[in-house]
Each structure stands twice: as C-alpha cells, then as structure tokens.
Amino acid sequence: MSEEHGYRVLFMLRLRPDSQREFLRAYEQVRWQVAAVSGHRGDQVCQSTTDPEQWVITSLWRSEADFLAWERTPEHRTAAAPMMAHVAERQSLRFTVHRETTAAVAR
C-alpha cells in the first residue's frame, strides 16, 4: 500500500552568464500564476552557493496528474518562456513523495 504525499518536480537550470536579475524578474512574473493552479502546493527557486549560474526550481504538487495537466497547457509554455530565455541548460527530474517530515514544534 502506497503512502503518497505528493509529486515533486525539480528543474535543474544553468543560467546564461549575467542573467540572474532578469531570470528572477521573470520568475516573479509567473510564480503567483502557478500558485493559483489546481493541485500546486508550493515552489522554491534556489541558487547554488558554489556556482552562481546553477539554479534549481522545486515545486510540489498534489499529484502527477495535476502537474502534467498544467504542464501540457499553452498557458504553461507562455508563462515559462520569459524564464527559459535566460537558461543555457536544463534538466527536469520528477519524484513521487512517499514520506515527509516537517519541523517539530518546540514545547
């Protein structure tokens, strides 16, 4: 029996040189649009501490079906295009979340 807790997508990105500011500006334009999509639970954009051109966007979805439904829409491609204009290389990794631990509350 499966104890699925969602669907995690990792976009591993290498930005074009000197495009960080424009990339983050484009991310700001799309993040709240994606946040309103059915099944989206949250996302993060992260920069490597050792390589300023290496980034990762993580997103958590209720299910694989929710993510794929969004990914297949013309709106997804339109929304992502301004960010992708600053990307030199990319890789998409997808995982089913089976266990999740949240921070313990101090008592």
Rank of each mutant, 00 (worst) to 15 (best):
A81P: 12
L93R: 14
E75F: 02
R16N: 04
I57V: 09
W55N: 10
A69Y: 04
A81C: 06
V37H: 05
S59G: 15
E4K: 14
S38H: 12
E53C: 06
G6P: 12
E64F: 01
R8N: 07
V30F: 03
L60V: 02
Q29P: 09
D66A: 05
Q91A: 09
H86Y: 05
M84K: 08
L24V: 09
M83A: 01
P17C: 02
D18N: 04
P17R: 03
V105G: 13
V97S: 03
S38G: 11
G39A: 08
P17W: 04
T58H: 06
L10D: 01
Y27K: 07
A81I: 01
F95Q: 13
Q33S: 10
D43Q: 10
W61R: 09
S92V: 15
E3L: 13
T58P: 08
V87T: 04
T73E: 05
A88R: 08
T49Q: 03
W32R: 07
D43H: 11
R90E: 15
Y27D: 07
M83I: 07
L15G: 02
P17V: 06
G6C: 08
T102R: 15
E71W: 05
H76G: 03
E89T: 00
E100Y: 06
T96V: 15
V56H: 12
L15N: 02
D43T: 11
A65W: 11
M1Y: 14
T101I: 03
V87I: 01
T50W: 14
H98C: 12
H86A: 02
F67R: 03
C46N: 14
H76C: 00
A69R: 00
E3C: 11
H76L: 04
W70N: 03
W70Q: 00
R25C: 04
R8Q: 08
D66Y: 09
H40A: 10
